[in-house]
Design a protein around this nucleic acid. Structure first.
Length: 572
RNA sequence: CGGGGCGUAGCGCAGCCCGGUAGCGCGCCUGCUUUGGGAGCAGGAUGUCGGAGGUUCAAAUCCUCUCGCCCCGACCA
């Protein structure tokens, strides 16, 4: 396409509203424009990338035996009330009333709608397995949309739903999707990792997230330096420690710790290591309050705690509750004599001796407190975040932490939705059985943003070949007839050969064109000008490496075909 | 939801403290010259200063309210 006719409003300066690389570059390259917080228009260039990613997803989903359909964005409250998510989903679910005052919402995900379709249309196990997917705009009224397409409120998502008659079939469907996802992100040219994940609001038993490794990621991944173990930090298991402190028990004594509340303040004041201190945190879980004991240098993993207590989320108790239950202001809670609440402890507490804990009295801690002798614990469980250096929970090796962008997630749902919505089929015995479901999502825009996070330099984007908005950026840097003739012929021939070409035919100066080309990031730049033509050549620059070569126009297409195959296969 | 910051021309910003009829750079339009890494000269257009109310002879500037956007945090005692 000719640049003189396309709306590609590139920006010379960084827009003030954008911080992260992908957000900034998408705005500057003229790919997106903001309409409201977390809501964007995709301009022609941005849409081309979106469509490329969608096409790869389509091909791989179809290859995996899934069928594409399209569900509505708006759905009636009744469906959501059947699964109780109308109440459960919270403010992220954008609700509205139609003219007849009926409740509706914009779909943040489509389990209800698809399950409703399934129960109406599918009767027999002979029709299974079934996998239905769509690529569609979703709406989630996020607390804090940010980073452009990375966390929008409105966003394009591929969501797929599988239905099987039994567990083993469901596992096969799950694995098929897992494999398809691996191919999709590989084809998109991303460096990613599939990690074990928590199941959160969607529910279910087994889940993996596909994480693109990048510093700007909002998620943390724990992975083993040996073997294949990798998990979202929310999920990453921590093994009970094997080492046990064997120092002799000392008598417990109170000690004044005026105004020292935090781990840092107390340990500095007492000149001890945080590893000798046990934090006591009070959490509200639904209507209950529980106490959690954790070593001073560890962090409570609230996802693990919520899962253990079988609630959707937990929050730290407010100061009034802490005062009421412990008799002391926050900062001095401890397990000694704490009667009103359950006391849970992280595994690490078990092997500790002579620890410092809060005394349930203002400005006071105890020294040399000991388990069983001085306080009791109802249950020892894995309640903390993994830390670098922790042993891998499976196989050998040590864990490291890295940041990741979650671009896809696969869930084995089980019968959570099919039971609530009575989506049953007859099995080979003529018996009604709820379908076993799986669901599988990919954030399309987020995948594009993640690709930029991984593929850019100070000049701009450097697209992986398979998702680049154009394969080649043709630049005419002279206004002569000869240059225009050669470029015009190249343009036609390249397109006939199947290349997507952006021809910068504007009357701009060379420098402007070079900079825009580097910003937009097509893998190949083809520079046609009088200088090269005098030697019978045009210049080709590979965006990624910056490598320039001179080549005769008639040899270009064959050369590009070879190169694009190499680059395309290795995805850049 | 809490904290911080910002709304002035298409974009990036100054002006606000100390009230006096709105400015810079880029971009845009016209002409000439230029033309291989963001050209030069000359001329030109563009603003409800986010909105409402108030104070004042006079408000972008001071006061009150409000809307929008960005960043951080959302309780780790």
């Amino acid at each position: 396409m000719k640049m003189s006719q396309l709306l590609i409003p590139t920006l010379r300066d960084d827009p003030g509203e954008a911080e992260t690389v992908s957000h900034r570059l998408m705005l500057r390259a003229g790919m997106i424009r903001k309409v409201a917080a977390g809501i964007y228009t995709y301009l022609p260039l941005g849409l081309r990338v979106i469509r490329k990613i969608e096409q790869i997803i389509r091909e791989e989903m179809n290859r995996a035996g899934a069928q594409e359909l399209l569900m509505p964005i708006a759905s009636p409250a009744e469906l959501w009330k059947e699964t109780a998510r109308w109440d459960y989903y919270g403010k992220e679910l954008l609700r509205f009333k139609d003219r007849h005052e009926r409740d509706f919402c914009l779909g943040p995900t489509h389990e209800e709608v698809i399950t409703d379709l399934f129960r109406r249309e599918v009767r027999s196990y002979r029709q299974l397995p079934l996998n239905l997917y769509q690529i569609q705009t979703k709406f989630r009224d996020e607390i804090r949309p940010r980073f452009g397409l990375m966390r929008g409120r409105e966003f394009i998502m591929k969501d797929a739903y599988s239905f099987d008659i039994d567990e083993s079939g469901a596992k096969t469907s799950y694995q098929t999707m897992y494999d398809a996802y691996t191919r999709i992100f590989t084809r998109c040219g991303l460096t990613f990792r599939a990690v074990e994940a928590d199941t959160g609001l969607i529910g279910g038993d087994v889940s993996h997230e596909f994480m693109v490794l990048a510093e700007t990621g909002e998620a943390t991944v724990a992975y083993s330096n040996e073997g294949s173990y990798a998990a979202n930090l929310e999920r990453a298991e921590v093994l009970p420690p094997s080492d046990v402190d064997t120092t002799p028990h000392q008598p417990m004594t109170p000690i004044a710790t005026p105004q020292r509340r935090t781990v840092d303040e107390v340990t500095t004041f007492l000149k001890i290591s945080p590893r000798q201190l046990v934090k006591t945190l009070l959490y509200r879980a639904g209507v209950d309050t529980v106490a959690v004991l954790i070593r001073g240098d560890h962090e409570v993993n609230e996802v693990k705690l919520a899962r253990l207590l079988q609630v959707t989320d937990v929050v730290l108790a407010d100061p009034e509750t802490v005062q009421r239950i412990t008799g002391a202001p926050p900062g001095f809670a401890g397990p000694v004599g704490l009667e009103q609440v359950r006391i849970l402890a992280d595994h690490a507490i078990k092997g500790m001796r002579n620890v410092v804990i809060g005394a349930n009295k203002a400005d006071t801690h105890y020294q040399n407190a000991n388990l069983d002798r001085d306080f009791r614990v109802e249950q020892f469980v894995d309640l903390r975040n993994a830390q670098p250096g922790d042993p891998s929970p499976r196989g050998t090796g040590m864990l490291s932490l890295a940041k990741g962008i979650e671009v896809g997630q696969v869930f084995l749902l089980g019968t959570k939705y099919s039971q609530k919505m009575t989506a049953t089929v007859l099995d080979d015995q003529g018996k009604e059985r709820p379908a076993i479901m799986g669901c599988y999502g990919i954030g399309v825009g987020r995948t594009a943003a993640a690709a930029i996070e991984q593929n850019h330099d100070e000049k701009g984007i450097s697209w992986p070949y398979p998702i680049a908005p154009f394969h080649a950026h043709l630049l005419t840097v002279s206004q002569s007839e000869r240059t225009t003739d050669v470029a015009s012929r190249l343009y036609t021939d390249l397109m006939a050969a199947g290349f997507e070409v952006l021809w910068d035919d504007r009357g701009e100066r060379a420098g402007v064109k070079f900079n825009d080309a580097d910003l937009i990031g097509a893998p190949f730049q083809l520079i046609v000008g009088d200088k090269g033509l005098a030697d019978g050549v045009i210049e080709m620059k590979i965006r990624r490496s910056g490598t320039k070569s001179r080549i005769a126009p008639h040899e270009l297409i064959a050369h590009l075909k070879t190169l694009s195959l190499e680059i395309g296969q290795s995805a850049g």
